[in-house]
Design a binder for these strands. Structure first.
Length: 529
RNA sequence: GCCCCCGUAGCUCAAUGGACAGAGCAAUACCCUUCUAAGGUAAAGAUGGGGGUUCGAUUCCUCCCGGGGGCACCA
């Protein structure tokens, strides 16, 4: 299925080329043609300011040039009207006939509607959460969790072959600290009831061993159940320990050395990350012989690329921001491309409860775990709440509002629309499998709903390109709203059998897309509410 | 000191460099003998401040003012 914006883009490009051939337009390299989805209905459904960008190639005013372009474009069946406005915008009004055809496609493709081939089946690895197995998942982990999961869903829909991966830091300093904490000795850092509980099960005297045991229990009994509760399924749980056991860490370090990217200083082995864009060089092997977390991370990076992934998407907490530069440096040093690593940095989630900020820290034992949040507000609300916000802004989560007003949460607005559509189908007792009499749909609210339905593919494309997940929740809300307006203005079940069938056909398309959007977000689509 | 993120309506958040800056919650006035009122309609309400680039800036650059986070032989 072609994306409407792309279709318009190609059309414009073709017309410009034609005008150049006929020497009506001068020769110039055609810039990227940007199609805007108009916010104001008076400005058409879509618009472009491409002529304004071409200004320097024309002696006459932009508006005059735009008119020439417009006259050619107006011949297309896609539009019912094309007009020039303002300084030289070209506004497009999508024709009902075109919309009817698109709705036909939706009914034909059903749940496959929205699938595009942007990814061309390329393998992408999405690594997210990857929280240390030292305690329950926090709201920050939740943000990354939902974000990673939904991005993976969208990328799949956009034609990528996606693998979801969780990296388990099951060795090293954090595990040792966990061991101390469980033992309750002077070097303990983590506190909380779960540590006290672990103390009863994990006995021993060596911190590393106790920590490993405790980490395993936390992973299996706390983290994995939480993730299941969050509605996330990982394709792979990757253990850091295996990188050491297989000798991959040593191999990675060797390779960096072979390529001339390491040096020794003060008894430690350093990686020359500074010449590759990092702030400073980084230690791979400490003076005491212990390899750093960064060393195993490089091995992990290498491992991922060697498994055939063309792109690595990594979700990082804001506190790991500084890590991006060195990861990219390492990937370059190993002969991979920096651009193939895409780091998504999550800004912090702050929690407010009873009007006050709750400082979240595993170390002090004061935090609200993801589990508690889901128990309090439900998975659908939790997901929507997180997904509405851009990942790179600070996010204040107000527990009081989430709890109190949960029945007014926008997610219900979307689900309610879905439930209502179902209700209408139930009442109508008419089964629609093929589109019928679509040409009868010409009310403004009907046309608007159709336009909204068709935008789904654009949303998929946009997100697959810029990873701005909040587009999806916004879209779902807009689609729901279009449905409500249709619902208010157009009665579906009437004496007019043909019109009833036409409107049911439209509703079926709306249902398919609404369900598709909710599914991408991992939110349920209830038959009734 | 250096680096990153943020500052938009009373609150929480949107807005691939485009036209009149959108939602939800809160507040105002209407609409249930009508396919589910968790809905609709009407009105009200915002880009921290100064420069700059541009035909056009919430968006890009710069300075300032606020808030947050990084700058380990920790992970």
């Amino acid at each position: 299925m072609e994306i409407m914006k792309e279709e318009i883009k190609e059309l414009i490009r073709g017309v410009i080329v034609g005008l150049q051939k006929n020497r009506i337009f001068p020769e110039f390299e055609i810039p990227e043609i940007v199609i805007d989805c108009s916010t104001n209905k008076n400005n058409g459904d879509y618009s472009t300011g491409v002529v304004l960008k071409l200004g320097r190639y024309f002696s006459q005013e932009a508006a005059v040039t735009a008119i020439t372009l417009k006259n050619r474009l107006a011949k297309s069946e896609i539009f019912s009207k094309v007009e020039v406005a303002g300084p030289g915008f070209i506004n497009f009004f999508i024709s009902p006939k075109y919309l009817h055809n698109k709705i036909k496609e939706v009914l034909k493709q059903k749940e496959k509607f929205g699938v595009i081939n942007l990814g061309n089946n390329r393998k992408v690895n999405v690594e997210f959460i990857s929280a240390n197995p030292t305690g329950p998942l926090t709201l920050g982990n939740g943000r990354g969790g939902f974000g990673g999961d939904v991005l993976a869903n969208v990328l799949e829909k956009a034609g990528y072959k996606v693998s979801r991966e969780y990296y388990i830091n099951d060795t090293g300093a954090q595990i040792k600290k966990l061991g101390h904490s469980v033992l309750g000795d002077a070097e303990a850092v983590y506190k909380g009831k779960y540590i006290d509980d672990l103390r009863k099960i994990c006995t021993g005297i060596v911190p590393e061993q106790v920590g490993k045991k405790a980490g395993k229990i936390i992973l299996e009994k706390t983290i994995k159940p939480s993730i299941k509760k969050m509605g996330i399924k990982f394709d792979k749980w990757f253990s850091e320990t295996t990188l050491y056991k297989s000798g991959e860490v040593d191999k990675a370090i060797e390779e960096l050395t072979k390529r001339g990217f390491t040096y020794e200083s003060e008894g430690a082995l350093w990686f020359k990350s500074m010449i590759l864009g990092d702030d400073k060089d980084r230690v791979l092997i400490r003076a005491d012989g212990i390899k750093t977390y960064f060393a195993s991370d490089i091995a992990y990076l290498k491992n991922k690329f060697e498994r055939g992934f063309e792109k690595l998407i990594i979700f990082l907490g804001a506190d790991h921001y500084g890590y991006v530069a060195r990861l990219k440096a390492a990937s370059y040093a190993l002969g991979f491309k920096k651009e193939d690593i895409e780091a998504i940095v999550l800004q912090l989630v702050k929690l407010f409860e009873n009007g006050k900020e709750v400082r979240m820290s595993k170390r002090t034992g004061t935090y609200v775990a993801m589990d508690e949040l889901i128990d309090a507000v439900g998975l659908d609300v939790a997901r929507f709440f997180f997904l509405q916000r851009s990942l790179n802004t600070h996010f204040n989560f107000d527990m009081d509002i989430a709890k109190e007003k949960s029945d007014k949460n926008p997610v219900f607005k979307v689900q309610y629309a879905y439930a209502r559509i179902n209700s209408i189908f139930k009442k109508s007792k008419i089964k629609i499998s093929k589109p019928k009499n679509l040409e009868l749909l010409k009310e403004p609210s009907e046309l608007e709903l159709m336009k909204q339905i068709i935008r789904f593919t654009e949303i998929i494309e946009d997100i697959a390109e810029d990873y701005q997940l909040q587009r999806l929740s916004n879209y779902a809300l807009e689609l729901a709203e279009s449905f409500y307006k249709f619902y208010e203005n157009c009665k579906v079940i009437t004496e007019d059998k043909k019109l009833t069938e036409a409107r049911l056909s439209l509703l079926l398309a709306a249902k398919i897309v609404l369900e598709g959007a909710l599914k991408l977000m991992g939110i349920s689509a209830p038959e009734k509410m």
